[in-house]
Design a protein around this nucleic acid. Structure first.
Length: 260
DNA sequence: CCCCATGTTGTAGG
DNA sequence: TCCTACAACATGGG
């Protein structure tokens, strides 16, 4: 799930549900998702506080409170959030925020590849982790400069969180498909018009996915993602979808539309 | 047993 | 310094 559109959907979900209520308690049921913070410190930071506002940078969700600490959530490959009254803890619930009144926000992470931590500010966190500009925030000129600064395959460049924050394996395939650029094309060898298409499509794909709450079943069938399987037929030319390794990750693309 | 999976980090080598 | 490949983390599905 969790690339930029998913995390943005979680952010809006938190805004719509979990703000402005006193936190009666914090339960850490799985310590392995804590990153450089103890369960005790989390409890101390959030008990009797209220979540007041949210922020997102790339795949990271930040939740501000009426206190000093900012909660940082990363979702790994299988993380999610659920807000529910009298929620019975599920086996994959890792951290629970209990609000007065009986509602509960659960941070769920099956594979434990996500991270929960604290920071004093979004600025400080993004600097420390060298996060690049958010994919929905970057300017066209900045984006072009990023592409030109790297000899790596363009797919790897799009997915490099230090260069551009928010795009992962799934959505990079869609952006490349919509732009008709091969995932293996060297980032610094793109023509100006290819750079432009990538910029435009990155924005379009991510915002359309957000509008659909990042729900794969709601994505247009004209997109690659519903056909992202080896041997499926390309929704554009009916050619065969290829699968290959790019930068250590599986890439799916249409060689006829996008090139080898 | 094998392979695969929406992510990140660390190591080794060219 | 930059880039690539690979393993590790942990869990589950086919």
């Amino acid at each position: 799930m969790p690339e930029l559109p998913d995390v943005e959907t979680f952010r809006r979900y938190v805004n719509a549900t979990a703000l402005h209520q006193r936190i009666a308690g914090v339960q850490v049921r799985e310590k392995r998702v804590l990153d450089g913070v103890t369960a005790r410190r989390l409890q101390h930071a959030f008990k009797d506080r209220r979540f007041e506002a949210t922020d997102r940078r790339g795949k990271y969700l930040f939740i501000h409170t009426d206190g000093e600490a900012v909660l940082v959530l990363h979702f790994g490959m299988t993380g999610s959030l659920e807000y529910e009254k009298e929620r019975e803890p599920d086996e994959h619930d890792c951290v629970l925020f209990d609000f007065e009144g009986g509602y509960r926000l659960a941070y769920i992470c099956q594979r434990l590849l996500g991270k929960v931590t604290l920071t004093e500010s979004v600025e400080r966190f993004t600097r420390k982790n060298q996060l690049g500009p958010d994919a929905l925030d970057v300017s066209q000129d900045e984006f072009a400069a990023i592409l030109e600064s790297s000899k790596t395959p363009v797919k790897s460049c799009l997915m490099d969180q230090k260069r551009i924050a928010g795009v992962g394996n799934i959505y990079s395939d869609e952006i490349l498909f919509q732009s008709r650029v091969s995932p293996r094309h060297r980032s610094n060898m793109l023509e100006k018009n290819q750079q432009k298409r990538l910029y435009r499509q990155m924005h379009r794909v991510l915002t359309m996915a957000i509008e659909r709450q990042a729900d794969p079943s709601k994505l247009p069938s004209s997109w690659l993602l519903p056909h992202r399987e080896k041997g499926e037929s390309c929704p554009r030319c009916r050619g065969e979808v290829a699968r290959g390794k790019v930068g250590g990750r599986s890439a799916y693309w249409c060689p006829r539309c996008q090139g080898e």
